[in-house]
Design a protein around this nucleic acid. Structure first.
Length: 1163
RNA sequence: GGGCGAUUAGCUCAGUCGGUUAGAGCGCUUCUCUGAUAAGGAAGAGGUCCCUGGUUCGAAUCCAGGAUCGCCCA
């Protein structure tokens, strides 16, 4: 029957439109938007017409429906609908509702999601939900998350939303699984990026400028700038639903944090792993600073440099070594020539000279003029000596230099002979140190004729004070070599060479003293620790990260800068050093207490030398600590460990030990950052943790990929393709933003990011979910007495199916989230929602109209479970649905994740059966389409070919199939005989391994069998013997695949062994019924055209072709019922319509004329 | 120059242990059904699974080489 609701309540009282969640949300949305940056506000205001349109439509729609489906009990007291929207503050304060099963408030079908989210945020604030979600898990097993601290000196971008979305989903999920997940926020405050920002703001260009400006003032500016965008960060963090404790965030500039870092470094120093050494670093002579590897990577450019081949005369010989270099300016620093010990070298007669170079390069370097006259290995050359220096050095007479071995020597280009200048190359430095030419820890042994500003010192005769990267200098050097007969040839060489990303100056590699942590001694231990880590994606473990660990070199942790944790090393004139491990120790030794241990204050603190018998004063070394060490110390420094736990004194080891045994603080169960952190935070955490505690600081790492624009181009301000997060949030909402990141692809693959992509997710998933939820609330509102009735309703198969499907998805989602695979989990939820919306609700519509309690209970339960499953993904919409439908806890985020007992047991047979039934429907609809028979036209019979379990499944659900296909009967046939013929094919998967090379023959043999006989045999469980290549085999049911051949003369859709045929014979009875349905459709249209409300009763007159009026008469009750006609006159006669002036229209059905006239009843 | 990852329909992406005719969503065309759903359903068009070679009865899938893109490193 048509809805009882509207008919009975058509006369119900009007009531003022309730203040819906949507209204409230929109209000809040407007208020909140005003806080936003101007550009965001503008963006919002550019679309007023769209919003107005949506609201107008929503209001119109809502009004119609509220009239149509007015609840039986009436809602004159707006209590249930409106007043409850003021949530009460307090723990577990649930929404008041009439009855636990009745939704608390009405739902706007066109709800604008960003506005809704604002309202949910408000509710979270009022009910203190985040804190509560941690509090309620007090005493529960901890699950530890570490926040990788961003720097708040820039505005947050979309990639930060990505990271924060993933940093949120797993903690939320684990909380719902019963863990206690504390989430301390954090901010990275120190470092060169901060300094550079301030330098630019102040117009400072060099370190000298900074010192002239004053370190104290400079650092004060740095301190301010670090939090320049803190407010926006906080706002974005909250808005996207990243739950993290920002009020108690750690900050790397805090005194407590610095003290923990000092403690860590002192521990490392005590283990003998902190040392000062020389290393060759990329250095910008113009900026006067070494660059970190990250900075270097920013500045590679392809350039053409002149390269030179230089002849160097061996001692006591007429032979010359032919060396090759792309940096002639390093030749004055030459102290040796390296050969590859394994490489074969040739002695070559070339014009009037004898040259030595790698045998494999002779032709390339010398052409065919060269004549090889001998050969030797690299080993043979080692320890021979040559005469130098190549360029005249003040105070250095002619002397000899050695040929040494170097594993880095290759024959890919050059000559296989490498000139060694230890001050200007890492390999050079290492090779020279390895043979004792220099002492790593004694600067005096290093020949370095270049000053810090990149000019030669006075030792380079004739070139004093010249800038080494000056192209004209290079030319002069080359001419000089040529004039002295040392130049074999020059040629241009194209290569990529690093430049300073700030000023564009080519970098030079330059030996400088620097402080190091001997991490290379811990290589094995770090690799072992890495083995305990679950990486997502897994290839990082032994790929990018494992490789990095394997190639580990000592960590250069000092920076000659200003804004950072000061290096706590004090040194006296005699060279004794002492590493301070606490503020108390510093105070005790120096007698001075500091409020701020940053530079410059700490620079002035002097200590007496701690070495026995040395009475010199100690001064702090000038460097600050690499910011990566700050971040690596975060597991303990964020808690001021060990100081916060220590009772008294300076012996802090017990406190440190208790830290590593405290499961609530160490190690982390989960961290998540972008892929570029493999060399950054992922490494610094692991290194510091291995140094101090000899174990990995994290158990699971999720690595996120890069966000690019829709064309795959990197987002950059200069390209103007940056998608601002506020833009997206304002338009689609945070749930949509998050959903896109979670489900569009695996996060480590990177994103091609566009607004369209996010909009698609909203339309296909969030809107669909909302719409299903709206449907439930709408009908629940109109059937409150049904909901309050005792729950003794018998669920239909469809209900059991919906519950089982939900349980199946819940299992999968939990399993996938445990494996850090949000993508598969999210997609499964989307499929579930689609099933609920497009199958469960569609199939159950009539039951909702009729007020079947089982349908209400089922849909409500499924929606609540969906909201719980979805809570970690889309925390806003999930909470809104939960709060309205259930609300016994203050938030869905305080609920347990649906798992185990909380769910209905699965009925996998039913799930399977429904899948088969739906497939049958699909085939049947295909058959209809093929026959071009509209669904409105009923047919007598659908003939289904199905057997065994398939048949049982369809029979169980035959009502569904029957209704969907609009047929009177579903009939089964076992064999395809009535519908066509079988075709037997070989199952390659089972037979392939058996027959191997004979497989094609076997397939042929099976195809040649009589399919009917095969089908019969399979049905009866008999085997069929075949013989292929002399081999006998008995085929089982698994070995053959039976498919149907297309028959003639039927409308059949088939797929595999499954087929549906429709009886196309339409008798008069069916024809009349089909016509009646067409007439209903036409009358419904006429009602709409006449501007009637859905529940209006009509008087109806039909006139027209006799075939139609006959049908209308034959199905009068049906027609009247569907169209709410209190009276119906249908006749084929002139003047049959007495009131043409009310409303009438003429239409055609199947080419037959129909005149419809109607008027509203009771007017 | 080295390492890692990616490459499947116009677009965004799935694709299990190597197995029969490679899928989904969006978009497009046609039809259809609609008073929860700017929705749903059916059909159609659309594919050199980046290329070449190899292994195999059989390769999108495994191996080698190459191309292109991205990231990391030099």
């Amino acid at each position: 029957m048509f809805a009882g609701g509207p008919r009975e309540h058509a006369g119900g009282q009007r009531h003022p439109r309730a203040d819906t969640a949507g209204d409230r949300a929109r209000r809040l949305g407007r208020v909140a938007r005003d806080d936003r940056p101007a550009d965001v506000r503008d963006e919002a205001e550019r679309r007023p017409d769209r919003r107005a349109r949506l609201q107008g439509r929503a209001a119109r729609y809502g009004r119609e429906h509220r009239r149509a489906h007015r609840p039986r009990a009436g809602r004159g007291d707006a209590g249930a609908a409106g007043a409850v929207l003021e949530p009460t503050i307090g723990r577990h304060m649930a929404v008041e509702r009439k009855h636990p099963l009745i939704p608390a408030r009405e739902v706007d079908p066109r709800q604008e999601l960003p506005g809704l989210e604002q309202a949910v945020l408000e509710r979270w604030r009022e009910r203190d939900v985040f804190a509560e979600s941690v509090r309620t898990r007090e005493g529960a097993p901890p699950w530890v998350f570490y926040e990788g601290p961003p720097t708040a000196n820039g505005r947050p971008g979309s990639h930060h939303v990505l990271a924060r979305a993933f940093k949120d989903i797993y903690p939320r999920y684990k909380t719902m699984r019963g863990y206690r997940v504390q989430r301390k926020g954090g901010w990275d405050c120190h470092g060169l990026p901060v300094e550079i920002g301030v330098e630019q703001a102040l117009g400072l260009k060099s370190k000298a400028d900074i010192e002239a400006y004053g370190i104290e003032r400079f650092n004060a500016k740095c301190r301010e700038s670090v939090f320049e965008y803190l407010e926006e960060w906080n706002r974005l963090t909250e808005r996207i639903g990243f739950w993290v404790d920002l009020d108690d965030a750690y900050r790397t500039l805090d005194e407590t944090y610095i003290e923990s870092v000092w403690w860590a470094l002192a521990q490392i120093s005590r283990k003998g792993l902190l040392y000062e050494g020389h290393k060759v670093v990329p250095y910008c002579p113009r900026c006067g600073t070494a660059l970190s590897s990250h900075e270097v990577a920013l500045g590679y450019e392809d350039v053409v440099d002149p390269s030179v081949y230089v002849k160097v005369r061996l001692l006591d010989s007429d032979e010359s070594l032919l060396i090759w270099t792309t940096t002639p300016w390093t030749l004055p620093g030459n102290v040796a020539i390296a050969v590859g010990p394994e490489i074969e070298y040739a002695r070559v007669r070339y014009r009037d000279e004898t040259l030595i170079l790698a045998a494999g390069l002779v032709e390339r370097v010398l052409g065919d003029e060269a004549e090889v006259v001998g050969s030797m290995s690299g080993d043979d050359l080692i320890d021979r000596r040559y005469v130098g220096p190549i360029f005249k050095l003040r105070g250095v007479g002619q002397q000899t230099y050695p040929v040494i071995g170097g594993t880095f020597v290759t024959t890919e280009d050059g000559t296989g002979l490498v000139h060694i200048a230890p001050a200007f190359g890492e390999d050079d430095f290492g090779a020279a140190a390895a043979v004792g030419l220099i002492d790593r820890n004694d600067a005096a042994t290093l020949l370095n004729p270049v000053r810090l500003d990149g000019t030669y010192d006075d030792g380079v005769v004739g070139y004093e004070g010249r800038f080494v990267k000056d192209p004209s200098l290079t030319e002069e050097l080359i001419s000089d070599l040529d004039a002295r007969g040392l130049l074999h040839k020059r040629e241009d060489y194209e290569h990529s060479y690093p430049h300073c990303w700030r000023c564009g100056t080519p970098l030079i590699y330059y030996a400088k003293p620097s402080w190091y942590i001997a991490t290379s001694k811990l290589r094995e231990r770090m690799m072992a620790a890495n083995e305990t880590v679950g990486w997502h994606p897994p290839h990082i473990k032994h790929g990018r990260f494992g490789d990095w660990l394997r190639g580990n070199v000592d960590w250069a942790i000092s920076r000659e800068r200003y804004w950072g944790t000061p290096l706590p090393v004090w040194r006296c004139e005699a060279g004794h050093t002492h590493t301070i491990g606490s503020f108390a120790e510093l105070e005790r030794l120096s007698g001075r207490a500091l409020d701020d241990h940053h530079r410059p204050f700490v620079d002035d603190v002097e200590l007496p030398c701690s070495h026995d018998g040395c009475h010199a004063r100690m001064h702090r070394v000038p460097e600050v600590i690499d910011v990566w060490f700050d971040s690596g110390a975060m597991p303990f420094a964020q808690h001021h460990v060990p100081f916060a736990d220590a009772k008294t004194g300076e012996d802090l080891s017990p406190a440190a030990e208790s830290f590593t045994t405290d499961a609530a603080r160490f190690p982390a169960d989960f961290i998540c950052e972008a892929l570029d952190q493999t060399r950054g935070w992922f490494y610094s955490l692991l290194a510091v943790s291995t140094l101090l505690f000899e174990q990995a600081p994290y158990r699971n790492v999720v690595c996120l990929g890069l966000i690019t624009d829709a064309e795959g181009q990197k987002m950059s301000k200069s390209k103007g393709n940056v998608v601002e997060p506020w833009q997206v949030i304002d338009k689609f909402g945070a749930d949509a933003f998050r959903w896109y990141f979670f489900t569009s692809k695996q996060p480590w693959d990177g994103y091609r990011f566009s607004e369209e992509a996010i909009g698609e997710g909203v339309r296909l998933f969030l809107k669909q979910l909302w719409s299903t939820y709206f449907f439930y609330v709408l009908y629940a509102g109109a059937n409150q007495d049904v909901l309050q009735a005792p729950a003794d309703a018998l669920p239909a198969d469809l209900d059991r199916w919906a519950r089982s499907r939900t349980a199946a998805v819940a299992e999968l989602v939990a399993e996938r989230l445990d494996a850090y695979d949000a993508t598969t989990a999210g997609r499964a939820i989307a499929e579930l929602v689609d099933d609920l919306s497009n199958w469960y609700v569609r199939r159950s519509r009539r039951r909702f109209w009729d007020g079947d309690p089982a349908a209400f209970q089922t849909l409500r339960e499924c929606l609540i479970n969906v909201s719980k499953l979805l809570a970690p993904f889309c925390p806003f919409i999930a909470d809104e649905i939960y709060d309205n439908l259930e609300g016994s806890l203050a938030s869905v985020h305080l609920c347990d994740f649906p798992a185990g007992e909380a769910l209905t047991e699965r009925d996998e047979q039913l799930e399977e059966a429904m899948a088969i039934a739906r497939e049958t429907v699909r085939l049947g609809l295909g058959a209809r389409a093929q026959a071009k028979i509209k669904i409105r036209q009923p047919l007598a019979e659908a003939i289904v070919v199905a057997d065994g379990q398939e048949r049982a499944a369809i029979e169980r659900l035959s009502e569904v199939v029957r209704e969907e296909l609009n047929v009177r009967r579903v009939r089964f046939v076992e064999a395809a005989d009535e519908l066509g013929e079988y075709e037997a094919k070989a199952n390659y998967r089972t037979l392939g391994p058996l027959f191997g090379k004979e497989m094609p023959l076997a397939a042929e043999a099976i195809a040649a069998l009589d399919p009917t006989r095969v089908a019969a045999a399979v049905r009866n469980g008999e085997g069929i013997g075949i013989s292929v290549g002399g081999r006998e085999h008995t085929l089982t049911a698994d070995d053959v695949i039976l498919t149907m051949k297309a028959p003639d003369g039927y409308s059949v859709e088939r797929e595999g062994a499954h087929a549906v045929a429709l009886d196309l014979h339409i008798d008069d009875d069916l024809l009349r019924e089909g016509r009646a349905r067409e007439i209903v459709h036409a009358v419904q249209n006429a009602r709409k055209n006449a501007g009637l409300a859905v529940e209006d009763r009509i008087e109806l007159w039909l006139d027209g072709d006799e075939a139609l009026t006959d049908a209308a008469q034959a199905h009068g009750d049906y027609l009247a019922g569907e169209t709410l006609a209190v009276s119906l006159k249908a006749q084929h006669a002139e003047g049959a319509i007495p009131y043409p002036s009310r409303y009438s229209e003429q239409t055609e059905i199947e080419g037959l004329r129909l005149q419809i006239a109607l008027r509203k009843h009771g007017v």
